[in-house]
Design a protein around this nucleic acid. Sequence first.
DNA 1: AGGTCATCTGGCGTATACAATGAAGGCCAT
DNA 2: ATGGCCTTCATTGTATACGCCAGATGACCT
Lengths: 244, 244
Amino acid sequence: MNQRQPEPEHRPSSPRRGKDGDGAERHEAIYRSISDAIIEHRLKPGARLREDALSEVFGVSRTGIRKILQRLALEQLVTLTPRRGASVTRPTADEAKDVFDARQMIECGLMPEVARRITEEDVQELRTMARREREALRAGEQSTAIKLSAAFHARLARISGNATLADFVDRLCSRSSLILAVYGNAGHLGCESHDHDDLIGYLEAGNGERAAAFMSRHLKAIEASLSIVEEADEAPDLHRIFGG
Amino acid sequence: MNQRQPEPEHRPSSPRRGKDGDGAERHEAIYRSISDAIIEHRLKPGARLREDALSEVFGVSRTGIRKILQRLALEQLVTLTPRRGASVTRPTADEAKDVFDARQMIECGLMPEVARRITEEDVQELRTMARREREALRAGEQSTAIKLSAAFHARLARISGNATLADFVDRLCSRSSLILAVYGNAGHLGCESHDHDDLIGYLEAGNGERAAAFMSRHLKAIEASLSIVEEADEAPDLHRIFGG
DNA sequence: AGGTCATCTGGCGTATACAATGAAGGCCAT
DNA sequence: ATGGCCTTCATTGTATACGCCAGATGACCT
């Protein structure tokens, strides 16, 4: 009944494996590993990602790593400088503003349709996600909380039925995680309190307008909690600093 | 004469040029060549894009072609099926609806900010683009007109100053070109008449609300002009056809 | 002593070669 | 004659090897 794929043992240490279980799935797994590590801030903005180091860690050759890195670059999670390699993107203040403005427009605009389409099943799943997020936050697992928060917003957008916009929201949420890593204050993380639960309530009641307004405030609150101080590490302007 | 050769540039007779002027720019040029060919409908949806054929045409090895193909796949201009190769994406009716809904939300939502930020210089450039588009349309150069129309919308979005949303609009416009290729009626192309000129007028007057409403109607008109008849070439449902 | 230049090295970019897989066509059996 | 199976081929996917450029370090000159 189950045609078992010859996958059960993967040899991580042996680079000499002629037969690979399923390359595509393996690549997808590696992609998610790196993506999660970035979103969870285990890889901090500015961290360099050397190709052969990654290829050795994951047991695939540089070719596959390059493909994954390029995909991440197109999603703007990593920056690829022409002959210097890959590094985790360090968002600028302008990019942060753009991302949150975009989220305002898209996520709020999606709320009415979400309220129209949401099912009881969706509500259950969202409540579970919100609960897990709160638990993680209470347990001090900020990395997990950030990831769950992004996943919540992404899941919400997908209910709208518009796959294209949902994909956009996915990417905006990923980038928001990066922005929180750079500009967020520790201990004052976004999406705290019971905002997500309240939002679910409005959606469950079918009140799309209210949900949109609430989402707007929610995002504004997150953005306002950022301490966007453009660190002018470039050209520190010694004259101004030392009064010269 | 149907024998189209998408060879934009000569190929230097020697494929063995180890000394390349600039690889990155060359790749970018190839990317734009293929992208333009798709947007201009010189490569029609469903057309297969074999890697070695492309590599031979452009004089680079398959490695570079793969990178470009994957980038196009992430932008959903080409579809990459696991071991069958690349082909120009054939959008489904659902995708078409999603894309136009997304354009409604983003492009209309951007209009107020565009009206606020637009400069005299922008106005001049947009008018030039609109004029060239009309000229192309009148000359019967549909390919050029489609490309210029997409470029107009993309340029408009970029005035908003939000690079992230402008990138989204870029991709939506590219995909719209594909959609027009599949579902559009010949001779009744979108963005005809003087819609674009009227839009520029509203923006120049700083009337963002009016511009947004006009853009909404404009996009609705394009979408309405499509003949979305889902050709069920997949699984013709012989039972129903033959009453079996 | 400080600045500048040459050299050296580490890492990326590209091309080529090999292996695996899906598709198509031919052959045989019924 | 037709349907199923097997062989063959074409095409992608992956790995490896080589070349080039940027950064760093050290020495030499001013």
